[in-house]
């Protein structure tokens, strides 16, 4: 590992994963936003707090999109009494990006209680975003009481019956998965047999050089199973993606930024636009974390993802609302 005096880390990880200390350093920047670029086995991280040191070439690419997550519209407790305002702040942040994203991904918990007016408000606020297309996957808060009927009618019209779907953008294959239905007592998120079968077929015709982006609400890796932060059958899904050189997995649910690299798969969880949750195990429960009002926007945020053709790399930039 080589490290210079600036906030930049270079890891030559010899094709076997990322240096752990370096990765923790990268995570430590999450509060202020970090840019992580994987290029041919070398990971570069830049602190967003020093934008002057960022190489503009790393920010360019064939395709850029933004992930937002966990708007929890309707939540009004002390952790954030105005989640509409912070979602609007997220949209303002998106609209201020030097290069407008082509579309948005929303990784679930659009609403807090699956109420029509909550979904309405989110759709209304997102209309003011520079990117007009929004691709959704449901969170457990979006499918309450009606097994997701309302969510499906609004947000998953072109999807498979279970709500999952895939699409192509500039050579990148995107897969939206649903892992919040039919949860079993004592268990984690679950994809289910039918969806896994569909996934296998969906990707089997693709060239192994196709970059893959998988997005789903609950993390597809075991972040902290004690709090239900993981998906029971995610290993099977990832097994179908083994042949691909570049797989990026984007999740929400845990209201904080975490990253992990395993072989060719980069896992990333995004901030919430509504309220933060504690780090795994650092509180009695994963309930909303109350932070001083002036700090709230520093723990909420958006994720900007940049794909550079031919480099097998997606640059993932997290920025807070502060």
């Amino acid at each position: 590992m080589a490290r210079n005096t600036k906030d930049e880390i270079l890891h030559d990880h010899n094709h076997d994963g990322i240096d752990r200390r370096g990765f923790l350093k990268c995570m430590a920047w999450a509060g202020t936003g970090a840019l992580c670029v994987m290029q041919g086995g070398v990971l570069k991280s830049y602190s967003m707090s020093r934008p002057s040191e960022m190489n503009p070439a790393d920010m360019k690419g064939e395709l850029s999109f933004v992930q937002i997550s966990d708007s929890h519209m309707g939540f009004n407790k002390p952790a954030n009494p105005d989640v509409a305002a912070t979602l609007q702040a997220a949209v303002d942040k998106i609209n201020a990006l030097s290069r407008p994203p082509e579309f948005l991904l929303h990784t679930g918990d659009i609403s807090h209680l699956s109420k029509p007016e909550e979904f309405d408000t989110v759709e209304q606020i997102l209309k003011s975003a520079s990117a007009k297309d929004v691709f959704y996957v449901p969170g457990e808060h979006d499918v309450l009481n009606d097994d997701g009927k309302q969510y499906h009618e609004r947000f998953a019209k072109g999807a498979q019956e279970g709500g999952w779907y895939s699409f192509e953008k500039k050579g990148v294959h995107f897969v939206g998965l649903v892992n919040v239905m039919n949860l079993k007592a004592g268990g984690l998120g679950t994809l289910g047999h039918e969806q896994l079968e569909w996934l296998e077929k969906d990707v089997q015709h693709l060239k192994s050089s196709t970059p893959i982006v998988v997005f789903a609400h609950i993390p597809l890796w075991a972040v902290y199973p004690e709090w239900g932060w993981g998906t029971e059958d995610s290993a099977q899904a990832l097994a179908y993606l083994k042949k691909f050189g570049s797989v990026t997995v984007l999740n929400g649910h845990i209201h904080q930024i975490m990253q992990k690299v395993e072989g060719n798969v980069t896992f990333h969880t995004a901030c919430s636009t509504a309220f933060p949750q504690p780090k795994p195990g650092e509180a009695p429960s994963p309930g909303p974390m109350k932070v001083p009002a002036e700090q709230l926007r520093s723990v909420l945020g958006i994720t900007d993802v940049n794909y550079v053709s031919g480099q097998h790399a997606l640059a993932v930039v997290d920025s807070t609302l502060a």
Binding site: H141, A185, G186, G187, G228
Partner: peptide
């Protein structure tokens, strides 16, 4: 009668 929270199934 075992039961759980269907939103947070770790709760039983």
């Amino acid at each position: 009668y075992p039961y759980f929270c269907s939103i947070h199934p770790k709760m039983t």
